[in-house]
Write a protein that binds this DNA or RNA. Sequence first.
DNA 1: AAAAAAGCTTGACCTATATCAAGAACTAAA
DNA 2: TTTAGTTCTTGATATAGGTCAAGCTTTTTT
Lengths: 194, 194
Amino acid sequence: MNIYKGILDHVAKYVELSDSETEEFISILKTTRVKKRQFIIQPGFVSEYRNYIVEGAVRVFYLDDLGKEHTVIIAIEDWFFTDFYSYIHRTSAEYYAEALEDSLILQMKYEDVEELCSRIHSLCQYFRLFTERSMAHSYKRTISNISKTTEERYWEYVNKYPQIANRVPQYVLASYLGISPESISRIRSGNKKN
Amino acid sequence: MNIYKGILDHVAKYVELSDSETEEFISILKTTRVKKRQFIIQPGFVSEYRNYIVEGAVRVFYLDDLGKEHTVIIAIEDWFFTDFYSYIHRTSAEYYAEALEDSLILQMKYEDVEELCSRIHSLCQYFRLFTERSMAHSYKRTISNISKTTEERYWEYVNKYPQIANRVPQYVLASYLGISPESISRIRSGNKKN
DNA sequence: AAAAAAGCTTGACCTATATCAAGAACTAAA
DNA sequence: TTTAGTTCTTGATATAGGTCAAGCTTTTTT
């Protein structure tokens, strides 16, 4: 099976590419395999790529002054991840991206994406439309973070992404939701809401 | 003074528009004046526009089941606001946008923006680049929300946006930072207790 | 198959911050 | 200038959920 199928379907949800455009797009994709626990992005280095997951799972997290991890993205197949700020501003990353499983990812370099977007209108449209949708989604998360209790946030996530919740370690989920692992443990054992 | 200067400068930070493109862009801008406390977006109605503030201040907030307000955007001159999810998906808004002062705003209808973007490559680029930057910024806020104490978040905001902090009511700032107004009051007075 | 990591659970305790209440100090309107 | 409506402050009290510690279970490595 073609490893590009997923990402091309993703693009096709927003725009139609001609054969030559498709070819150009594929030509900037770099295939990379990473092993579980391997870092793909690290503070101190610029996050050069937008990364698309073909197979596997990755999390992006921030390590604060006290050594606590705060997960900002949990990504599986057909998701993108990067340290967006570092990627766009060409500054040193602030986050780690760590493979949660052996994964196969497709990487697009910043310069290549920019070059293609400046030349190919439909690809520019694709990234615009897709980023706008991510943006809309990000507001939903902000609301959830500031207006829900820990328990509500936990069940909301589990209901929305049951397959992810079962796939990643609990402490990763905890650090994504801003809850202590102990509290998640208690929520799970105590209240059996759905 | 030209009311379009601000928004055109904003565009010019990302792309160059020809005279005819500039004209087309201006042609989709609708000038609207709103009075203090007036709602620009309301649940139950689709958020039709991207709104740019020429003069004034606006907040976007969410009203939860318990009647508590959660501010997601505090916007002043040269900022954009909308209920992004509603705007993009053409669904009923979930948020209120309320003028904090008498304001002058420029509004762009979704259909008009899409039409222009599909026709004018440089405008598509503008919205793409600008949205990507907003996105990068939004991650910073997520981190702040989940990794900082209330006091750190308060001082971080005041240092970053001193002019806004002094301009909007304290309870608005409180609901933006996810802190109770009482706690902000105590933080300001330097009282470390309670 | 052991040994070593990594991950999860449970109980006891504790603290940061919310909530409630009531009055003071602004601001806008009559 | 008085009045009514907001907004801010301060004190008392409550509690959600974090931290610590220790042991248990599952997964990974040798």
